[in-house]
Amino acid sequence: MEVQFRIERFNPDQDTRPWFGEYTLEVEPTDRVLDALNEIKWKQDGTLTFRRSCAHGVCGSDAMRINGRNRLACKELIRDYGDKITIEPMLGYRVIKDLVVDMEDFFDSYRTLQPYLVNDENPGAGRERLQSPEDREVFDDTTKCIMCGACTTACPITWTNKDFLGPAAIVNAHRFIYDSRDKGANERLEVLNSKSGVWRCRTIFNCTEACPRGIEVTRAIEQVKRTLLTGE
């Protein structure tokens, strides 16, 4: 099938504002959007710039706006979009070039919340920190995050309020707050209880809609809010 791609282009060395490049391509309906982007880069215009790595929905590099929604280009089949596809960079962060955005703020928010196991207690010589399947289940959903940024850049609060920690950072804090082996919950909750923390969330659900891993992001954020309210 023949598909027309409109791709937002921006080269800070040449352009004062972004523009749309148009590319017509012969593809299989079962090709992925990433295959088409590669085809364009390799055969039509080598200057087209985008991030991709594993190409199998695990590394989280190729999140972008496909027909207006944040998606991983490697997980989207062309047949689900028809013969006209518009691709733009994720919203809310500075565009470095074409589809590549500056995710420094994103990772800065992530690091603020200590996204690692905090526990200085010695489990005992030769012992692991054990956990029951029930305790593991509590935070199972938020372990799935691949840090692609689709949720955070789908959130209208992130677009306007640069201080908001954003859904992805909260999801990764959630993953450790509810981990029975972790002891750092109070410090994380203190940050999340601040003005730029969970209270900026308006339960718009864009994050849940955008997540390529199917994480119920809004539910995780609400759970943190309830914990702050009830202390449980």
Partner: peptide
């Protein structure tokens, strides 16, 4: 205005 340091205030919680 930058992101504030957490000050342990529950104001935003009560506001919500």
């Amino acid at each position: 205005v930058g992101r504030e340091k957490p000050v342990g205030s529950n104001f935003e919680l009560y506001s919500w």
